[in-house]
């Protein structure tokens, strides 16, 4: 589903990604962990070309990510949820959800609305469809953001520290939605600090540091027996 070959990314002289290779299969749930500044968010943002790779190759669903035309086609298939929600503040929850299907997929209004309401129900926010984002809690906003990404019927979902900006009591409701998605067989790449989530639904955990993948494997193994000293040091700090 996702092939990444020798991916490099530099900002001027600062090299953030120093050669990432990885292959993510359909329906796989991959959790990316690592200290801040390790390049994990940059890696994720390269996967839908919010960041332009300096060199290397990314192939998503058989399509190489290179020209601008491909980029919009790829982005339709790759949903992304951000740390800071990024809901459109001038639109209600349901308007946030139906906008892209209507203007990008050209879905008719009634159909988009129907699917949108179903998605809001799925994330437990049926009663908030008509609310503007500033009237919603952080957890609710993030769930709307997930519904908005799902409305494009993506094949892959990227989660960029989706619970890091939330008050602790709201983390659970967002993780619950993500877990449901994982169980339904969505292909997911999640950058997160939620080790419980990684252990419970992750098929694979990738530990990144200094712009490379230091270690990867089945979560239970990596968490119990980290082989790389960096992984050991990182895990000992957060577990």
């Amino acid at each position: 589903m996702i092939y990444v070959k020798n991916l490099h990314k530099s900002y001027g002289k600062l090299e953030v990604l120093k050669g990432i290779d990885c292959h993510i299969k359909e329906k796989e749930v991959v959790v990316v962990i690592g200290p801040s500044g390790s390049g994990k968010s940059t890696f994720l943002r390269c996967l839908n070309k919010l960041e332009e790779p300096t060199s290397g190759e990314i192939i998503i669903d058989g399509i190489p990510l290179n020209s601008e035309i491909n980029v919009n086609a790829i982005r339709r298939e790759v949903g992304m949820v951000f740390q800071r929600f990024n809901l459109f503040p001038h639109m209600t929850a349901i308007q946030n959800v139906v906008l892209a299907p209507e203007i990008v997929r050209k879905t008719n209004k009634a159909e988009a609305e129907k699917v949108g309401l179903e998605l809001l129900a799925k994330v437990g926010l049926s009663d908030k469809a008509g609310e503007y984002p500033d009237r919603l809690s952080g957890g609710q906003q993030q769930r709307v953001a997930i519904a908005r990404a799902l409305a494009m019927k993506p094949k892959i979902m990227l989660f960029d520290e989706t619970t890091s900006a939330l008050d602790p009591e709201m983390v659970g409701e967002v993780l619950a939605v993500m877990k449901d998605l994982a169980r339904e067989g969505m292909t997911m790449v999640a950058v997160t600090h939620e080790m419980g989530f990684a252990r419970e639904v992750g098929d694979r955990v990738i530990f990144m540091d200094e712009g490379i993948i230091m270690e990867e494997g089945v979560p239970s193994e990596v968490f119990a027996n980290p082989k790389n000293p960096r992984t050991q040091a990182f895990l000992s700090k957060i577990l």
Binding site: N48, R75, R76, N86, F88, I103, V104
Partner: peptide, 22 residues
């Protein structure tokens, strides 16, 4: 906020759609 453009683009909108609707 830049995040607004990023959210719009990540949903597959073109630059001009993001500008116009978001």
């Amino acid at each position: 906020d830049r995040g607004q453009t990023e959210a719009a683009r990540s949903l597959g909108m073109t630059q001009s759609q993001a500008m116009r609707y978001v």
